[in-house]
Each structure stands twice: as structure tokens, then as C-alpha cells.
Simulated scan of single mutants.
Amino acid sequence: MAKKVLVVEDNELNLKLFCDLLRAHGWVAEPVRDGREAVARALAEMPDLIVMDIQMPHVTGYELILAIKADERLRAIPIMAVTAYAGRDDEERIRGAGADAYVSKPISLARFMDAVHALA
């Protein structure tokens, strides 16, 4: 059975790119366009991995990481942050919140998939 990835991204082009890339590599990609829906969708889908943008309207990826890791039903799901924030302090803050991996934008397709494979 293919592994499932929840992709939380507000930018339609990035969402399509990530989902298409995952599907091309045999994964089941579940898109989430609004971060406010991410926790409920994670509970409904129970994915093997969550890939999320950090800079989103309404709720940040940083806040979502904290919410997911605070929920005992979800905390074991690995989270890969994908973000344009590329500073060392940003990576430390995001990892400190509970992200298991960090990939900066613009992404390298090979690096993105290497990170996915390493987590799930």
C-alpha cells in the first residue's frame, strides 16, 4: 500500500508541484490549501508524513507544527517544513517546534524527495 502524505500549502503552484512530484514517486498526496483545516485533515487521514509551508495566511506552519505535536494522536507523524525562510535561526526555530526536516524554497526536486524518503 502506498504511503500517504498530507501537503499543506496555500500557494496553488507549489501545492500542485509537491503533490504531482509525490504522486510520480508512488505516494498518495492529499492537498490542504488552508492551514486552518490541517489538524482536522490530519486526524481524518492519519498520513505517514505531513509536508507543510511555514508562511501561510490565517495560521502559520510554525503554529500548526506546535498544534500537531501537542496532539497525542498526531505527534508521531513526521513533519517536513518547506519554506522560503532560509536563515539558520529560522531552521532552528522550526525544528525546535517539532519539525523533523526542513527544506528551503526554491526546492531542489531531488532534495525534496530525499527528505520525504528519509522521513516515511
Rank of each mutant, 00 (worst) to 15 (best):
R23L: 12
V82P: 01
L15G: 13
I54D: 02
E72I: 11
H58G: 04
L22M: 04
Q55E: 15
L109T: 03
D48E: 07
K69G: 11
A81F: 05
Y85D: 06
D114R: 00
M1G: 13
V5Q: 13
A40M: 09
L66T: 12
E37L: 13
D71V: 10
E12W: 07
G87M: 02
A70H: 05
V8P: 10
M113I: 01
L21A: 13
R73Y: 12
V82G: 02
E12V: 09
V103L: 05
V116L: 00
A118S: 05
N14Y: 11
A38S: 13
I79Y: 05
M56W: 14
P78W: 01
R36M: 09
R75T: 05
M56N: 14
L22G: 02
A67Y: 04
L43Y: 12
A84K: 07
N14M: 06
E9K: 06
G87T: 00
A76F: 07
A76G: 08
E30G: 06
V39W: 10
L64D: 08
L43K: 09
R23E: 15
D89L: 03
A29F: 11
A40N: 08
R111P: 01
I77N: 00
A42Y: 11
K69F: 12
G61A: 10
D100L: 01
E63Y: 04
P106V: 15
P78T: 00
S104I: 05
R41H: 12
I50M: 10
E37F: 13
R95F: 01
R33M: 11
L66E: 14
Y102P: 06
H117P: 00
D10L: 08
D90N: 06
L6W: 08
E72K: 10
